[in-house]
Computed example of a mutant assay.
Amino acid sequence: MTRTEGPGALAHLRSLPSWLVGRVAAHGRSLVAEAIAEEGLRPPQHTVLAAVAEHGPVAQADLVRRLGLDAKDVVLLLNDLEDAGLAVRRPDPRDRRKNAVTVTQSGTQTLERCAELAERANAELLSPLSAAEGRQLMDLLDRVHEARAGDRRP
């Protein structure tokens, strides 16, 4: 009998770091999604708004490249953000054929509140750990992430 058959197969699956990290990540995403919903945002909207705030004014095509999202999805997300008064699209001064997206003052304030809500959600996620254990977990996850990011560097 192999590890994939009979008793122990589920226990083996649950012993894999990839399974455990995925489950914890899903719980964390759910906590943050629930928290930022108080501001009327879904996680993809929050991501696009944060990217616009950090890189704006930014061309829509640049947002697509930076975020690795489908262009049609970014347009829909920007429509939502613009309708909510959180971002605006205007002709790009460098190339009038393109739109540049900028975060509004209301968008900046929303991002500040979302940051606080996300911090609280993550504190809840890590609440079973001491402060030192939480820092250690973050250091270890960062090391794994950076090693993987290093594999993709040219």
Rank of each mutant, 00 (worst) to 15 (best):
M1V: 12
T2N: 11
T4H: 14
T4Q: 11
G6V: 03
G6N: 03
G8V: 01
A9S: 13
A9G: 06
L10V: 14
H12K: 06
R14K: 06
R14L: 12
S15K: 04
L16I: 06
L16W: 03
P17E: 04
P17Q: 04
S18Y: 08
W19E: 11
R23G: 08
A25P: 00
H27E: 15
R29M: 05
S30E: 15
L31G: 09
A33Y: 06
A33R: 11
I36A: 08
A37K: 13
A37Q: 13
E39G: 10
L41F: 05
L41V: 07
L41S: 09
R42S: 11
R42A: 15
R42P: 03
Q45C: 06
H46I: 01
V48P: 02
L49E: 09
A50R: 09
A53T: 08
A53G: 13
E54Q: 14
H55W: 11
G56K: 10
P57L: 07
P57Y: 10
A59R: 13
Q60A: 15
Q60C: 03
Q60W: 01
A61M: 02
A61L: 12
A61C: 07
V64L: 04
V64M: 05
R65G: 00
L67R: 04
G68V: 02
G68C: 00
L69R: 11
D70L: 05
D73N: 15
V74D: 09
V75H: 11
L76R: 12
L76K: 08
L78A: 00
N79Y: 12
E82A: 12
E82W: 03
D83F: 08
D83I: 02
L86Q: 04
L86N: 02
L86F: 00
P91G: 04
D92R: 07
P93T: 04
P93L: 06
R94C: 01
R94V: 07
D95A: 08
R96V: 10
K98I: 00
N99E: 09
A100S: 11
V101F: 06
V101Q: 02
V103N: 00
T104E: 01
T104D: 00
Q105W: 09
S106F: 09
S106Y: 01
G107K: 01
Q109W: 04
A115W: 01
A115C: 00
E116Q: 09
L117S: 01
E119F: 10
R120M: 11
R120P: 01
R120N: 06
A123M: 12
L126R: 05
S127L: 10
P128V: 06
L129D: 11
S130T: 15
A132W: 00
E133L: 10
E133D: 11
G134R: 13
G134F: 03
L137K: 07
M138N: 01
R143T: 13
V144L: 15
H145A: 14
R148G: 04
G150E: 14
G150M: 12
G150W: 12
R152M: 13
R152K: 12
R153T: 14
P154I: 03
